[in-house]
Design a protein around this nucleic acid. Structure first.
Length: 546
DNA sequence: AGAGGTGGTG
DNA sequence: CATGCACCACCTCT
C-alpha cells in the first residue's frame, strides 16, 4: 500500500488565529473524507480541557488550537464537522464527539469509526476494542510512538513541535486503515452492521454527556439501613464462631478482634471444612443454602447486605461528576461478543431491581422540568427464538398468551387457562427453565438440576419439549452445526460472532466444541436483541431530539 | 497487577 | 463425565 504521508515528517499546519483558520477551512471544505481527532488534558469533557482539534485530508492535517481559537464562534468550523455529505474518520469517535460538542457545540455526523469497525470485524475473538496503535500495526505494519500522548495529561504549557507531529499523524493514519477496513467489511457483509454502530455511537455520546440524575441523600439513607443490618449479622457471625478459635483475639488496646475475616473465602473454607467438619466445595450461596448449620444462615444474611453495600454503596456515589452533579457512566456499545452493550463506572445495568428493602432504582429521578421515560421490550429473546425458528406453535404462544404457562400446558397435557400460573406454578416454572435454558444451549443434566428432577426425567422433558416445538430443535442444531463448520455465526441483520476452532489434537476438543455450540445457539438470539435495541436507540434519538 | 471466587443485572 | 448465554464490581490472595 502506498502511503500519502510520511510517518517521520507528517505534513500539517498549526492553526492559532482566525485568519489561519479561515484558510485551513477553505482547504478542508474541498475534501469528501476527513480524518478527525482531538487532544485533551484527560477523558472527562466536564472536568478536562480541550487542547487541539485535528482535521485533515489524506495528505495533510490542520491542527486547531482550542485554547487560542474561539471554536464555538467559528460557524464555518461547525458547518464543516456537521456537513452530512462528508465522511468523518475517527477512532473511538464517541470520545471526540463529546469534547467537540461540549467545547464548540458541533455535533459530528456521518462517522466512520475505526475502533468500532475493528470491533464488528473481530467480535468473539477475545481481542476486545483496540487502540489506534494496534490498528497501525495490523494494517500498516507501523509502530506508533504513543509516549507523546501522556504529555497531554493535565497539560498547561505551550504545545511543542513533537506534540504537533504526533497529533497530525493521528488523522493521517486513519485513511489507509479506513480503506482496508472498508474492504474487509464489504467482504464479510458487515457494512450495514458497521453503519448501525456508527449511527449508535452519536447516541451513546449524547447519553453519556447528558448523564443521569441521582438522589444522593436518598441513596445514602438506603445504604445506612443496609449497613445496620450487615453489622448486626457480622457481629452474630463472630459471636457464633468465637468458641471454635482458641487464640485470644485481643489487640494491644484490649479490644476484642474478629476471629477470621468473614470476607475471606480461604478462611471461610477452613472454618467449614476443619472447624465445623462440614465439607463443602465452595462457599457460594447455592452450597450454603443447602446447609442446616446456623453459621451458614447468618453468613448468607451477612453476604446479602455486604454485597449491596460494597458494590452499590458509597463507591457508586464517588462517581457522581463534580461539575454536573450527575452520573455519567461509560456505555461500551460493543461490550459483549454478541453485540450487546456493556456499562462501566458505574455499571448502571446491574443496579439491583427495586424491592421494599432495597429501592435503589427509585433514586434515579428526572431533574426539575424533565420526565424520565422508560422503554423496554417484553420477552424479547423468546420472541426472537419463535420468529427465527419459524415454529408456528411458539409464535402463537409468544403472541397470544403467557408463553411459559402455554409451554407447560402442552408438555404436561393440561388445559391452558388464564390462571394456569396460579394452578400449576411448578409446571410453569419447569417450562420456563426449559424456555430460557434452550436459548443458552442447556443440556438435560443441567435442566434436571435446575428444576429438581433426575437426569432421566430432565431428558424426558427436553424430548417432550422438542416434540411440541420441532422447529426449535432443528433451528438450534443448524446454527450450532454451521458455527463449527464455518467458525462464525450471524444474526439476521448480519452481525457476526467468530469462534476459535480447536485443533483435533486438543485434549479439550469435545469440551471446546460444545462451548462453541452453546455460544452459537445463543448468539443470533442475544445478538438480534442487541441489533433491535440499537436500531431503537437511533430511532428514538432522531425523533425525541430536544 | 492479575487471578479466582462471589454475586448483582439482562 | 460435564457442559446455561452475556457482562461488571468488589473482595482476598499471591
Amino acid at each position: 500500500m502506498e502511503l500519502r504521508f510520511d510517518f517521520a515528517k507528517p505534513n500539517f499546519d498549526y492553526i492559532t488565529t482566525e485568519a489561519q483558520a479561515d484558510k485551513a477551512l477553505e482547504e478542508l471544505e474541498k475534501e469528501q473524507i476527513l480524518g478527525v481527532d482531538i487532544e485533551g488534558t484527560g477523558f472527562d469533557p466536564y472536568t478536562k480541557t480541550l487542547l487541539l482539534v485535528q482535521i485533515g485530508g489524506p495528505e495533510k492535517s490542520y491542527i486547531f488550537d482550542a485554547r487560542k481559537l474561539q471554536l464555538k464562534d467559528l460557524p464555518r468550523f461547525r458547518a464543516l464537522l456537521e456537513n452530512s455529505k462528508v465522511i468523518k474518520l475517527l477512532h473511538n469517535g464517541k470520545f471526540d464527539y463529546q469534547f467537540i460538542k461540549h467545547n464548540t457545540g458541533a455535533e459530528l455526523n456521518n462517522i466512520f469509526d475505526t475502533m468500532l469497525s475493528e470491533g464488528v470485524l473481530t467480535a468473539g475473538l477475545g481481542i476486545g476494542l483496540v487502540s489506534l496503535k494496534d490498528l497501525a500495526k495490523k494494517y500498516l505494519q507501523f509502530d506508533m510512538e504513543k509516549g507523546v500522548r501522556k504529555t497531554f495529561a493535565d497539560f498547561t504549557g505551550k504545545i511543542t513541535e513533537e506534540q504537533l507531529a504526533y497529533s497530525a499523524l493521528d488523522t493521517l493514519i486513519l485513511f489507509p486503515i479506513f480503506e482496508q477496513q472498508l474492504e474487509a467489511l464489504k467482504k464479510e457483509n458487515l457494512v450495514n452492521i458497521a453503519k448501525l454502530e456508527f449511527a449508535v455511537t452519536r447516541v451513546v455520546a449524547e447519553m453519556e454527556l447528558r448523564g443521569i440524575h441521582i438522589e444522593v441523600a436518598k441513596w445514602r439513607e438506603i445504604i445506612k439501613d443496609l449497613q445496620q443490618k450487615r453489622n448486626r449479622y457480622a457481629g452474630e457471625f463472630q459471636e457464633a464462631i468465637k468458641p471454635l478459635y482458641k487464640t485470644n483475639h485481643v489487640d494491644l488496646f484490649g479490644n476484642v478482634t474478629d476471629s477470621i475475616n468473614i470476607n475471606s473465602q480461604t478462611q471461610l473454607m477452613d472454618l467449614f471444612n476443619s472447624k465445623l467438619g462440614i465439607t463443602i466445595p465452595s462457599t457460594g450461596d447455592a452450597i450454603l443454602a443447602g446447609l442446616a448449620h446456623p453459621i451458614a444462615k447468618v453468613l448468607r444474611d451477612y453476604r446479602t447486605y455486604e454485597k449491596l453495600i460494597s458494590a452499590f454503596g458509597e463507591s457508586l456515589l464517588s462517581k457522581v461528576n463534580p461539575v454536573t452533579g450527575r452520573l455519567h457512566p461509560d456505555f461500551i456499545q460493543l461490550g459483549a461478543a454478541t453485540g450487546r452493550f456493556s456499562c462501566q463506572n458505574p455499571n448502571l445495568q446491574q443496579i439491583p431491581k427495586n424491592s421494599e428493602e432495597v429501592p435503589f432504582r427509585t433514586c434515579f429521578t428526572p431533574s426539575k422540568g424533565y420526565k424520565l421515560v422508560v422503554t423496554d421490550y417484553s420477552s424479547m429473546e423468546m420472541r426472537i427464538l419463535a420468529d427465527q425458528s419459524g415454529d408456528q406453535k411458539l409464535i402463537q404462544a409468544v403472541n397470544d398468551v403467557d408463553v411459559h404457562a402455554f409451554t407447560a400446558a402442552l408438555m404436561f397435557n393440561k388445559e391452558y387457562t388464564k390462571d394456569f400460573k396460579k394452578q400449576y406454578p411448578d409446571l410453569r416454572q419447569a417450562a420456563k427453565a426449559i424456555n430460557f435454558g434452550l436459548m443458552y444451549g442447556m443440556g438435560p443434566s443441567r435442566l434436571a438440576v435446575q428444576i429438581g428432577v433426575t437426569p432421566e426425567v430432565g431428558k424426558e422433558y427436553l424430548d417432550k419439549y422438542f416434540a411440541i416445538f420441532p422447529s426449535v430443535r432443528s433451528y438450534l442444531d443448524t446454527i450450532a452445526k454451521n458455527a463449527v463448520e464455518r467458525g462464525w455465526s450471524a444474526t439476521p441483520a448480519g452481525r457476526k460472532r467468530w469462534y476459535v476452532l480447536p485443533d483435533a489434537s486438543d485434549p479439550d476438543y469435545r469440551r471446546r466444541i460444545s462451548q462453541i455450540q452453546r455460544e452459537a445457539k445463543n448468539h443470533p438470539i442475544q445478538g438480534t436483541n442487541a441489533d433491535v435495541t440499537k436500531y431503537a436507540l437511533v430511532f428514538l434519538n432522531d425523533r425525541l431530539k430536544i
